[in-house]
Amino acid sequence: VDNKFNKEQQNAFYEILHLPNLNEEQRNAFIQSLKDDPSQSANLLAEAKKLNDAQA
């Protein structure tokens, strides 16, 4: 993981990586967004979790 991520951002990265119901395309999009703007990690994680739950 890129060293410019802080602890919260790293946690978001790993959580998104391991959400079971996202397809690869969705997962990659969230990860790319996280890399583009790490400050949005909490929002991105919340969105990813919502999508993950919706696809459960």
Rank of each mutant, 00 (worst) to 15 (best):
residue 10 Q to V: 03
residue 56 A to W: 14
residue 39 S to N: 10
residue 50 K to A: 12
residue 12 A to S: 05
residue 40 Q to C: 09
residue 52 N to M: 03
residue 10 Q to M: 10
residue 30 F to C: 03
residue 10 Q to H: 04
residue 10 Q to Y: 08
residue 36 D to H: 11
residue 1 V to H: 13
residue 47 E to G: 06
residue 35 K to Q: 07
residue 46 A to G: 07
residue 2 D to G: 13
residue 38 P to M: 09
residue 16 I to Y: 00
residue 5 F to R: 00
residue 27 R to V: 14
residue 22 L to A: 00
residue 36 D to M: 06
residue 33 S to C: 13
residue 54 A to V: 10
residue 37 D to C: 03
residue 45 L to F: 06
residue 40 Q to P: 02
residue 37 D to Q: 06
residue 20 P to C: 09
residue 56 A to S: 14
residue 20 P to V: 05
residue 50 K to P: 01
residue 55 Q to C: 09
residue 36 D to T: 13
residue 27 R to G: 01
residue 41 S to N: 03
residue 36 D to N: 11
residue 38 P to S: 11
residue 40 Q to Y: 13
residue 35 K to L: 05
residue 15 E to R: 05
residue 15 E to N: 07
residue 9 Q to I: 04
residue 46 A to K: 15
residue 16 I to N: 00
residue 47 E to R: 06
residue 41 S to Y: 14
residue 40 Q to V: 04
residue 44 L to A: 14
residue 4 K to W: 11
residue 41 S to T: 13
residue 17 L to R: 04
residue 53 D to Y: 01
residue 18 H to N: 09
residue 43 N to I: 14
residue 18 H to P: 01
residue 40 Q to L: 11
residue 7 K to F: 11
residue 9 Q to K: 00
residue 38 P to W: 04
residue 46 A to Y: 05
residue 3 N to Y: 00
residue 9 Q to M: 00
residue 12 A to G: 04
residue 51 L to H: 15
residue 22 L to M: 05
residue 31 I to G: 03
residue 49 K to R: 03
residue 12 A to I: 14
residue 22 L to V: 07
residue 27 R to S: 03
residue 43 N to T: 08
residue 56 A to Q: 15
residue 29 A to R: 06
residue 8 E to C: 01
residue 1 V to K: 10
residue 51 L to S: 07
residue 30 F to M: 13
residue 11 N to H: 08
residue 53 D to F: 15
residue 4 K to F: 07
residue 27 R to T: 10
residue 6 N to K: 00
residue 47 E to T: 08
residue 24 E to Q: 12
residue 23 N to K: 15
residue 47 E to N: 04
residue 41 S to V: 11
residue 43 N to V: 14
residue 2 D to S: 10
residue 55 Q to M: 09
residue 26 Q to D: 06
residue 1 V to D: 07
residue 41 S to M: 07
residue 53 D to R: 10
residue 39 S to A: 10
residue 10 Q to R: 06
residue 14 Y to M: 15
residue 43 N to P: 04
residue 29 A to W: 12
residue 52 N to Q: 03
residue 53 D to I: 10
residue 49 K to N: 13
residue 33 S to Q: 12
residue 29 A to G: 11
residue 31 I to K: 04
residue 3 N to G: 06
residue 30 F to W: 03
residue 18 H to S: 13
residue 52 N to G: 03
residue 14 Y to D: 09
residue 44 L to S: 03
residue 19 L to A: 05
residue 26 Q to F: 05
residue 56 A to K: 03
residue 42 A to K: 07
residue 23 N to G: 15
residue 19 L to I: 03
residue 56 A to T: 15
residue 51 L to A: 14
residue 30 F to R: 00
residue 38 P to R: 04
residue 11 N to V: 11
residue 25 E to V: 06
residue 6 N to Y: 02
residue 17 L to E: 09
residue 28 N to E: 10
residue 35 K to G: 10
residue 33 S to A: 15
residue 14 Y to S: 11
residue 44 L to W: 10
residue 28 N to C: 11
residue 25 E to W: 05
residue 32 Q to N: 11
residue 49 K to L: 05
residue 33 S to R: 11
residue 35 K to F: 10
residue 17 L to Q: 14
residue 38 P to T: 04
residue 3 N to S: 04
residue 30 F to N: 00
residue 46 A to M: 12
residue 41 S to C: 08
residue 12 A to D: 05
residue 55 Q to Y: 15
residue 54 A to W: 14
residue 14 Y to I: 10
residue 20 P to T: 15
residue 13 F to N: 04
residue 51 L to K: 10
residue 16 I to F: 04
residue 35 K to P: 01
residue 16 I to Q: 01
residue 5 F to D: 10
residue 9 Q to T: 07
residue 12 A to C: 09
residue 54 A to K: 04
residue 40 Q to A: 07
residue 14 Y to V: 05
residue 48 A to Y: 02
residue 18 H to F: 10
residue 14 Y to K: 12
residue 5 F to N: 03
residue 50 K to C: 12
residue 15 E to M: 12
residue 23 N to Y: 07
residue 50 K to V: 06
residue 52 N to E: 03
residue 37 D to Y: 06
residue 38 P to K: 04
residue 31 I to W: 05
residue 37 D to R: 08
residue 8 E to T: 02
residue 42 A to F: 11
residue 13 F to R: 09
residue 55 Q to H: 03
residue 14 Y to E: 12
residue 49 K to P: 00
residue 13 F to I: 06
residue 18 H to G: 08
residue 38 P to L: 07
residue 42 A to P: 11
residue 44 L to E: 02
residue 38 P to C: 04
residue 18 H to E: 15
residue 52 N to T: 02
residue 45 L to Q: 06
residue 43 N to H: 07
residue 10 Q to G: 05
residue 22 L to T: 00
residue 21 N to V: 02
residue 26 Q to H: 04
residue 48 A to F: 02
residue 14 Y to R: 13
residue 50 K to R: 09
residue 7 K to L: 04
residue 15 E to F: 01
residue 31 I to E: 05
residue 46 A to P: 01
residue 16 I to T: 01
residue 22 L to N: 00
residue 34 L to K: 00
residue 35 K to Y: 08
residue 24 E to D: 10
residue 55 Q to K: 02
residue 42 A to H: 14
residue 36 D to V: 02
residue 8 E to K: 01
residue 51 L to T: 12
residue 38 P to Q: 03
residue 31 I to C: 11
residue 26 Q to S: 04
residue 51 L to F: 15
residue 6 N to W: 03
residue 18 H to R: 14
residue 46 A to F: 12
residue 19 L to D: 01
residue 39 S to K: 12
residue 13 F to V: 06
residue 3 N to L: 01
residue 26 Q to R: 02
residue 48 A to K: 00
residue 39 S to I: 13
residue 33 S to H: 15
residue 21 N to L: 07
residue 20 P to H: 08
residue 39 S to F: 10
residue 6 N to F: 02
residue 12 A to K: 02
residue 31 I to A: 11
residue 16 I to E: 01
residue 18 H to M: 06
residue 10 Q to C: 07
residue 54 A to G: 13
residue 20 P to G: 12
residue 19 L to G: 00
residue 1 V to R: 02
residue 31 I to H: 07
residue 6 N to C: 08
residue 4 K to P: 08
residue 19 L to E: 00
residue 37 D to E: 13
residue 45 L to I: 05
residue 38 P to Y: 02
residue 5 F to L: 05
residue 45 L to S: 10
residue 53 D to A: 04
residue 9 Q to Y: 10
residue 6 N to I: 01
residue 45 L to K: 04
residue 33 S to W: 08
residue 8 E to D: 08
residue 44 L to K: 05
residue 48 A to H: 00
residue 32 Q to R: 07
residue 37 D to S: 05
residue 12 A to Q: 03
residue 24 E to F: 04
residue 49 K to Q: 08
residue 48 A to V: 04
residue 55 Q to S: 14
residue 20 P to F: 05
residue 35 K to S: 05
residue 26 Q to N: 06
